[in-house]
Simulated scan of single mutants.
Amino acid sequence: MSVTLSPSYSTTTDAPTLTDTNPSPVCSLLELNKRQPAIIDEIVANHRFGEIDGAISQRLKDLGFLPDTLVYIVAKGLFGKPPYAVQLSTGAQFSLRADELMKIKCRAITSA
């Protein structure tokens, strides 16, 4: 006796893809709206950190702020000012200052 199982749900996915035919311009994470999903493009230098800029960049990378990672602002500070609570696609959340947010360049994902 053989049994064939078929799913009771649709097998097509309507999930958004990370590839975008019309990519949005690169902006800093500081410029995003709350809950606006974005894909990290790169971590750039910020002269305000001075000599420790390289260490700050490495720290952000070690925490998971890597290229092609989905990220969004979960919450903003008092009156919409930093620090911001930021969540990665892994589910990890971090509180970042304005200077750290400016180091993270990303592309906002807009719905079609």
Rank of each mutant, 00 (worst) to 15 (best):
2 S>C: 10
4 T>Q: 08
6 S>R: 14
6 S>P: 08
7 P>F: 15
8 S>Q: 11
11 T>E: 10
11 T>M: 12
14 D>T: 14
15 A>V: 14
18 L>N: 06
18 L>K: 06
18 L>Y: 08
22 N>H: 12
22 N>L: 14
24 S>A: 11
24 S>V: 09
26 V>L: 03
27 C>H: 01
28 S>H: 01
28 S>L: 00
28 S>Y: 00
30 L>R: 03
31 E>F: 05
31 E>W: 07
34 K>C: 09
39 I>N: 02
40 I>Y: 09
43 I>V: 08
47 H>S: 15
48 R>D: 12
48 R>V: 12
49 F>A: 04
51 E>I: 12
54 G>F: 07
56 I>Y: 04
57 S>A: 13
60 L>W: 06
60 L>M: 02
65 F>T: 02
67 P>M: 02
67 P>L: 04
69 T>C: 05
71 V>L: 06
71 V>I: 06
74 V>M: 04
76 K>C: 06
76 K>D: 04
76 K>M: 11
78 L>S: 08
78 L>T: 14
83 P>D: 05
85 A>R: 12
85 A>Y: 13
86 V>K: 01
89 S>W: 10
90 T>R: 05
93 Q>W: 07
94 F>Q: 03
95 S>L: 14
96 L>N: 01
99 D>I: 06
100 E>V: 00
101 L>K: 02
102 M>K: 03
103 K>E: 00
105 K>P: 01
107 R>V: 03
108 A>H: 10
108 A>N: 07
110 T>S: 06
110 T>P: 04
110 T>W: 15
110 T>K: 13
